[in-house]
Every structure is written in structure tokens, then in C-alpha cells.
């Protein structure tokens, strides 16, 4: 447990010591704020709830955030050679993967939490805005965080497969967008596969949750998907040293 905490703390510190983290955070906030503002301006009178307007945009910005955070996780260690030093200390592969993931996830969690304040700021600035549906806000936040957790685990696995951060970033970005839009793309295909693929559509999940329609299936999907990706990462890390 102490090794896990030490690795997690180092990962978090490394993220905050890098200017990339602050720039990413700023870009993420600016982009999600802009999308939210645009959704509010164009959505007046449509009856669309504020959480849907917020998280419908935030989930797209999460793809950029996850790409930037995950690309350096292992690719940098492999490039610097520090993986050798790390894996010859008395730590297990699981502790290394879990520690690195947890450190990156905490940064992600903090960054994804910040836009939750947007609807409150909007209400404070415009007394005409109806009261907020806290349940829908919480639901939207929950599914966005779960999707981000799954995407981060996917990015971590990809960063283990290459020593080049740019390759890791591009591959991660493509895979996460595929996961995000898989259902929508498949919907254009034959009705049978489209129906199955719709269950996997992250956009649909976020929109449904942020309307207050909480379903346990997507929660199970992202939790099991995250666990699978981390398990695969542990196996890849073991295989990497053969």
C-alpha cells in the first residue's frame, strides 16, 4: 500500500510540476466553458436541462485532457529508462500501474470537477435561470468521471506500448474518440449491430445521465472496462521485460 501511495504521490507531483498540466487545465476549462456558453445561448427556450448542456460539451473536452495526461505515463518512463530503475526496486507491476493510474486520475478528477461550477456561476449571474436539478448534475458528473476513468486506463495501456509520447497521444486520442462515438457511427450501419453498439455510445450515456436517467449498465460497463484495461496494462508491463 505504501509503495502504491508513494508512486501515486510522485505521479501527481510530476503532473503538477509540469507546465503542461496547467496549460491543459486552462485549455480544458476554456473549451468546456465556451461550449457550455454556446449551448446555453443557442438552447434558450428548447427546454434542454443545464447539466445536459454542460456535460454534453465536457465529455468531448475530456478526450483532449485524457490524451495529454496519459501519453506521458509510461512512454516517458520507457524513453528516459527510469522504468528499469523503478522495476528493479521492490515493487510489483500492479503497484506501479495502480499508483501511476491513481496519480493521473486524481489530476483528471480535479480538472473535470472544475466545470461543475459553471451552472452555479450562470445562475448567480442570471437570476432568470431556473433552479438546478442537482440529481441530474450529479448523474452527469458521475458518468463523465467514469468515462474519463475508462479513457485514462485505455491511454495508460497505450502509453505502455510505445516510447514515443506523440505516438501514444495520437493512438490514445483515436481510441478514445472511437469509444465516444462508436454508438453514433454504428447507428448508421445495419439495425442489428447498431442496436448493440448504441449500448456502448458514451455520448448517449452522458446525455441520458445528465437528464437524470441513471442506468447501472453504463456504470458497470465503464468500471469493468477500466479494470480490464488496468489488468491488461499489468500484463503488458510484465511482458515488456522479456
Amino acid at each position: 500500500m505504501r509503495n502504491f501511495l508513494a508512486i501515486c504521490r510522485r505521479e501527481l507531483a510530476a503532473t503538477f510540476l509540469s507546465p503542461v498540466a496547467y496549460v491543459t487545465m486552462l485549455v480544458f476549462l476554456a473549451l468546456s466553458g465556451l461550449i457550455f456558453w454556446y449551448a446555453v445561448v443557442t438552447g434558450v427556450g428548447t427546454g434542454e436541462p443545464l447539466p445536459t448542456m454542460l456535460f454534453g460539451g465536457v465529455v468531448f473536452c475530456v478526450t483532449i485532457l485524457v490524451t495529454v495526461v496519459s501519453m506521458r505515463l509510461f512512454a516517458e518512463e520507457i524513453r528516459l529508462g527510469s522504468l528499469e530503475a523503478l522495476m528493479t526496486a521492490p515493487v510489483t507491476e500492479s503497484q506501479v500501474v495502480a499508483g501511476k493510474y491513481a496519480g493521473a486520475f486524481l489530476f483528471l478528477l480535479l480538472t473535470v470537477t472544475l466545470p461543475v461550477g459553471f451552472p452555479f456561476i450562470l445562475r448567480a449571474m442570471s437570476p432568470g435561470v431556473a433552479s438546478l436539478d442537482y440529481g441530474a448534475l450529479l448523474g452527469g458528473y458521475l458518468i463523465t468521471v467514469l468515462f474519463a476513468a475508462f479513457a485514462l486506463a485505455t491511454g495508460l495501456l497505450i502509453s505502455l506500448l510505445t516510447r514515443n509520447q506523440i505516438v501514444a497521444a495520437i493512438a490514445c486520442f483515436c481510441v478514445v474518440w472511437l469509444a465516444l462515438l462508436l454508438g453514433n457511427v454504428a447507428a448508421m450501419a445495419a439495425p442489428g449491430p447498431a442496436e448493440v453498439a448504441r449500448y456502448l455510445s458514451a455520448v448517449d450515456h452522458v446525455l441520458a445521465f445528465s437528464r437524470g436517467s441513471v442506468d447501472t449498465r453504463p456504470i458497470a460497463l465503464y468500471l469493468s472496462g477500466t479494470a480490464f484495461m488496468l489488468f491488461a496494462a499489468v500484463r503488458v508491463l510484465e511482458a515488456l521485460r522479456r
Partner: peptide, 20 residues
């Protein structure tokens, strides 16, 4: 191979923790 963003003592404390 070292972590370039860490300070010397901080790095050694981190490595010491990993080593029990």
C-alpha cells in the same frame, strides 16, 4: 535514469520509500 523534475533529496526519499 532519474526524474529530471524532482529535487535530489525528494528523489532519494521517494526511492527510499519504494525500498521499504
Amino acid at each position: 535514469p532519474l526524474y529530471p523534475e524532482m529535487r535530489v533529496r525528494e528523489y532519494l526519499r521517494y526511492r527510499g520509500t519504494l525500498k521499504g
